[in-house]
């Protein structure tokens, strides 16, 4: 299990690095899916099977497909590679990288003192569901409202201008 965790962790980090340096957007998306699946494996190793399933189905599945649709609609991909390359050519990445490095160093410093091991037992769907519809029921309702709002606004934003005249 430990081996699985570290393996998945390495895969996730490498895939993520590939996401942020890729010039081909479709390839980047594939790497992102890979990264998300690796994280799903990590979830499983940490004893969270429900989260692992949701990560694979909703994140790597549904949301990434949404990205794919948009990329197809905008007809991005091969023909934008040159442009991406030009955009990435400058020195613009140094400062953000530096900043992120500092942030990472800080995180490492803060987290280095954390003691404790992950629990050996799995927290199953039952436990999660019971709590979700117990004390967290209000949060669930709010999440549903958020999704509804997202749905409506996405519909409104994405339609063609002037469509409301019809």
């Amino acid at each position: 299990m430990m081996l699985l965790f570290y393996l998945a962790a390495v895969v996730a980090v490498i895939a993520t690095v590939c996401v942020i340096v890729q010039t081909n957007i479709v390839h980047a998306l594939i790497y992102l899916i890979l990264s998300l699946l690796a994280v799903a494996v990590i979830f499983y190793t940490l004893g969270a099977p429900l989260a692992a399933m949701l990560e694979a189905i909703v994140y790597a599945g549904a949301i990434m497909v949404l990205f794919l649709f948009v990329i197809m609609m905008l007809n991005l991909g091969q023909n934008t590679r040159e442009q991406e390359r030009a955009w990435l050519a400058g020195r613009g990445w140094i400062l953000p990288a530096l900043l992120a490095a500092v942030l990472l160093a800080q995180l490492l410093y803060v987290l280095s003192g954390v003691e404790g091991m992950s629990a050996p037992e799995q927290v199953g769907v039952m436990a999660v569901g019971a709590r979700l519809f117990g004390p967290y029921v209000l949060a669930v309702e709010l999440a549903s409202i958020l999704l509804l709002a997202g749905l409506i606004s996405a519909y409104h934003l994405a339609r063609k201008p002037g469509a409301e005249d019809e």
Binding site: P96, A100, V102, L103, Q106, Y109, V110
Partner: peptide
Amino acid sequence: VLSMAAGLVALIAVGV
């Protein structure tokens, strides 16, 4: 976004 991140770094630095 960069300024926000810089602010975050600064805040964490203060906290640390």
